[in-house]
Structure formats: C-alpha cells, structure tokens
Computed example of a mutant assay.
Amino acid sequence: MESSGAELQDNEIIEQRKVSPESVNVPEPQPCPSDLHAVLREMSVKLAVLQTEMKQVQTLNQEQAAKLREVDKLKLQQQEQAAKVDTLKQQQQEQAAKLREVDTLKLQQEEHAVKLRELQTSEVDPIKDQLRGQAAEINSIKSRMNVTENQVESLRRDRAGEAFTDAF
C-alpha cells in the first residue's frame, strides 16, 4: 500500500505541474551540412576582416605611440631650450650690468683726465715755467763761471809770466 500511496503522490505532483512549451526541452532541428559550411565560411570571412582591422588598429596605435614619444622628446628639447634661454637672459643681464659698470668707469676716467689737465695747467705749468727760469739762470751762471774761469786762467798765466820774467 505504501507503494501505491507513493505512486499517487508522484502522479499528483505531475498533475499539479503545468506543462509549458518553455519547460519542454525540444531539440532544435540540426542544420544540414551545407548550411554549416556556409556559416563557417561566413565566420571565416568575418574573422579575417576582424583580424585585418585589428592589425590596422595595432599599426595606428604603434604610430600614435611613436608620435607621442616624439612629442615627449620635443617637449624635453623645448624645456632644455627654455633653460638655455633663461641662462642666456641671465648672462645678458650680467653683461649689461658689466657694461654699465664700464661706462661708469669711463666717465670716472674722463673726470680724472679733466682734473689732471686742470692740475697741469694750475700747478704743473707754473712749476715748468719756474724750472725754465731756473734753467736759464743756471745757464747764465755757467756762462759767467766760464768767463770767470777764463779770467782766472788768464791771471794765472799773467802771474806765471811775471814770475818767470822776474826770475830772469
């Protein structure tokens, strides 16, 4: 009896279940071999197109990566050139400062030259005139001394001649 009770329960469960077309596993019809070959050919063509497109995309990516590296390289060169420009600007400013200093020194030199000319005219020229006068005086004294020397020599000769004549 128990077995018949179990059968009744199973039958009740089956009856309680409603059967729907989705719940029934009906195998789909198998395509014929010629359709399979057509699908495979179509898929092969699509795969070939996708591979070609993928290679083109990879080539574009590589080209863009190369361009990006070139851009990075150019940016680095630009930064280096900017640093050089800054250095050159600094050097230019330093040279401009040195030129201003040279100009200042030239002005000072010109001022000193003017002062030197003023000193020469105010102090050196009178001293030169004084030295010229002293040189003329010295020349006059020399010529008088030569005359005096000549007179002394003449007197010595005269005395020596008198002493020689007195002795005879």
Rank of each mutant, 00 (worst) to 15 (best):
E149Y: 01
E53R: 10
S34K: 09
F168C: 02
Q91A: 05
T59F: 02
A135F: 01
D129T: 06
Q109Y: 07
T121K: 15
E53L: 08
Q79F: 04
R156P: 00
N150K: 09
V39R: 15
R157E: 01
I13T: 12
E111F: 01
A113K: 05
V85M: 11
I138K: 05
I141T: 13
T87M: 09
V152Q: 11
L155K: 01
R17P: 02
A113E: 07
K128T: 06
D129F: 07
S143Y: 02
T59E: 12
N61M: 11
Q92R: 07
S140I: 01
A65M: 08
Q134K: 07
D10Y: 05
D10M: 06
G161D: 15
R157A: 01
V45T: 06
D10E: 10
V102W: 07
L47V: 04
D86G: 02
L88R: 05
S154E: 09
K18M: 02
M145K: 12
E63Y: 05
K115E: 09
R157P: 00
L47R: 12
A82F: 13
T104I: 03
S34D: 12
P21M: 10
V49H: 15
E101D: 15
T148Y: 07
R144P: 00
I127K: 15
L119S: 11
L74W: 02
A48F: 08
M43Q: 10
N150A: 14
K115A: 12
P29A: 11
K128M: 10
L99V: 10
Q79S: 12
L155D: 00
E53G: 03
E94C: 04
L155H: 01
E101H: 06
A136W: 06
T52C: 10
E28D: 14
A97F: 01
V49M: 15
N11G: 02
A136H: 11
L119C: 08
K46T: 05
I13N: 14
Q56H: 12
Q16P: 00
Q92P: 00
Q90F: 08
Q95S: 09
D158C: 05
L116W: 03
P21S: 15
A160M: 04
A96P: 00
G5A: 14
A65Y: 03
T87H: 15
A6V: 01
V124W: 06
E118P: 00
P21I: 07
P27M: 01
A163L: 14
H112K: 14
K106M: 05
S20F: 15
Q58N: 10
L47N: 10
D35H: 11
Q30S: 06
V102G: 03
Q130Y: 14
P21A: 14
D86F: 02
V24Y: 08
K106T: 02
N61K: 12
R156Q: 12
T121L: 15
L74G: 03
Q130M: 11
R17N: 12
I13A: 15
L76M: 08
P31N: 04
V71K: 02
F168W: 07
P21T: 13
V26Y: 06
V39Y: 13
P33L: 11
T52Y: 07
